[in-house]
């Protein structure tokens, strides 16, 4: 597929600068061999480039670069105020691609915390509270009742004793005949 002159002319600048790919450059080169119009355009561009180069080379030696470099050095050495650094940091951290991953990351951490109870039942309460059974009410129906709670072995014991005459119905201490807690 051959390109028309307009296309080739639009590629000439890039071709002269060596910016085209191998196949495209070969196509331009081939077209130039058989097209006087494009060859003329190429000659015009080459002449323009050559003129610009000579002018720039002549003027470059007269340019004073020292003030420019002094300004660059001053900006590098300049201590920026804390709020400007903070804004830069926030801008970098809260840029959309990073923020995009931060949202699910925060949600995952929150859900993981909330879901621990599903996988490790009782972990929260184990941290804050004793793991002993708690007796809310006891009615001995005429028996004496002793209650023992021992945290080391996580043991709660409700012990019943025969109610002897003269003893109170409920007692914190076991009567004789019961186990020596």
């Amino acid at each position: 597929m051959t390109r028309d002159c307009e296309e080739i002319k639009s590629l000439l600048g890039a071709w002269l600068d060596g910016e085209l790919g191998a196949s495209e450059a070969a196509e331009v080169r081939l077209h130039l061999q058989g097209c006087a119009s494009c060859l003329g355009e190429k000659a015009r561009l080459e002449k323009l480039q050559s003129s610009l180069k000579s002018v720039l080379e002549a003027k470059a030696s007269q340019l004073a670069f020292e003030p420019f470099w002094a300004g660059v050095r001053q900006r590098i050495a300049e201590e920026r105020p804390w709020h400007a650094r903070l804004i830069d940091w926030a801008r970098a951290v809260l840029s959309p691609p990073r923020l995009a991953w931060a949202i699910p990351a925060v949600i995952i951490i929150l859900l993981a915390g909330l879901s621990l109870e599903q996988f490790f039942p009782g972990w929260r309460w184990a941290l804050n509270r004793s793991n002993l059974a708690a007796v809310e009410s006891i009615d001995g129906h005429g028996f004496n009742v002793a209650l023992l709670r021992e945290s080391k072995t996580k043991t709660t014991v409700i012990w019943l004793f025969e109610n002897h005459e003269g003893e109170e119905e409920t007692s914190a201490e076991p009567v004789s005949g019961g186990p020596a807690f």
Binding site: G122, E136, F143, V145, K154, T156, V157, G178
Partner: peptide, 18 residues
Amino acid sequence: IVDTTVRVPNRGNFLLGG
């Protein structure tokens, strides 16, 4: 003989004896 209400840790136990 006895009536009691006990809050037992899930998968835990308590002893009733006598």
